[in-house]
Amino acid sequence: MKKLIISIGILALIYFAATIIVPPYIESQRNPVKISPPYSVSADAQALYDRLDFISDLHCDALLWGRDLTKRGTRGHVDFPRMREANVALEMFTIVSKSPAGQNMQSNSAEAFDNITPLTIAKGESPANWFSLINRTLSQSQNLADFIEEEEGKAILVKNKSDLQKLIEARKTDPSIIGGMLGIEGAHALEGDLENLDRVYQAGVRMIGLTHFFDNELGGSAHGQSQAGLTDFGKEVVRKMNELGIFVDLAHCSPTIVDDVLAMTTKPVIVSHTGVRAVLDSQRNLSDYQIEKIAENRGIIGIAFFDEAIGVPELPNIIASIKHIRDLVGIEHVALGSDYDGSVAVPFDITGFPLLVEGMLKAGFSEQEIKAVMGENVKRFFLQNLN
């Protein structure tokens, strides 16, 4: 019995040490920054950046890694202090609950080993989260709520139009006040149960990507095996999302799902993080036809920052992708959708946002167009469409 107790104690110590060492190591390997801060831009670009009233990003997976977002991190891409340094008003924090081993842009099986399971265990999360996608999702939602509560009024969880208006008004006198919204990357998190849509709504989720890297109960992924459209369950989910006021995110969806959603949705859609095929011809990215249909829907498109979506060199291609959408359907439909902390290498962390302003200035964008892309479009979109 004594040996058994000692063995259990040793295993507990090993597990405790692993929860401290393993998640930070994995995150540092999965989310590198190609150019480390600090970043510098021209005086003109910095002056314009300093005049921006509202800066926003539509996609960040920082909640996945178990980092305390109220503290400035030495790894990853986003946290509250770095948001404040970059004067970012609003970040969409997206929840990843499952990721297939061997994840790739071409074809992934829903049955592949799930990379998030060992990470969940290594983070020391409750055993209730180890094998439950919905529990992982609700846990990450609660984590953001807790981080915001710790800020004691310096951060706002935006769940409705009133919350957003409160954020906008508060920042007029205190620009250190920041906002966070909750999204889900992949509706497999609902586990095929429509009642779970109500649960995530109550938890504050206001955007859901219907698929991620594999097919699920709602239909086909752009990187899945079926390339199918919406299932009957998928159509139920979209209808109820429209009723509740949860935005449909079409990132990672099969072309057939994109068509199906645009044919039935009663609300404007979001593509939270993507590239465009005119800049990088990938099944990950939007065709001109899709961009035009999304614009007809009054939707908004966030341009991602990583090379699998926009190619290399990243910064010029980010600007080229923004320019392509502007020229095709108008500046009002394009925004930033970094995919920060999403197991991607990025050219700069969130404090490098002034580099985007400099890039757009060099490309001939007007100040009003730059303001629109950097956040005014997102502010207008949510003011018009949040409940």
Rank of each mutant, 00 (worst) to 15 (best):
S126R: 07
I291M: 15
E151P: 01
L355E: 03
G209P: 05
A278C: 06
K362G: 00
F247R: 11
Y201R: 00
P23H: 03
R72W: 11
G219W: 06
P268R: 05
E125Y: 14
R298T: 09
M83E: 01
I184Q: 14
S226C: 10
V88S: 03
G209W: 08
E369L: 08
A295T: 07
T266N: 02
I6R: 10
R75L: 12
L383P: 14
G186T: 08
A128Y: 11
L182G: 02
I303Q: 15
D349I: 01
A155R: 14
P316L: 12
R206W: 07
I178T: 14
V357R: 02
A320L: 13
A304I: 10
V373S: 09
G299S: 13
E376K: 04
L167G: 03
L164Q: 03
L69T: 03
V258Q: 09
F365M: 01
E296P: 05
P354Q: 11
V329N: 00
F16M: 06
H77T: 01
Q46R: 11
K98H: 10
D193Y: 02
I95A: 11
K240V: 06
V158Y: 08
L210C: 14
C253E: 04
G209R: 03
G275K: 01
L13T: 08
Q225G: 11
T211V: 15
P100H: 07
D259Y: 07
Q165R: 09
K323E: 02
N196P: 11
M207G: 15
A145I: 03
F247V: 13
E367D: 15
I325H: 09
A320Y: 08
I26A: 01
L328A: 05
E91N: 09
W65D: 00
Q106H: 11
I26R: 03
V200T: 08
L69W: 09
L383D: 07
D215Q: 08
L119M: 06
R51S: 10
V96K: 05
P81F: 14
P37L: 06
T211Y: 14
G342W: 01
V88P: 08
K71W: 04
A122S: 13
A89E: 09
V334M: 11
K159T: 04
A155P: 14
K123G: 11
N104S: 11
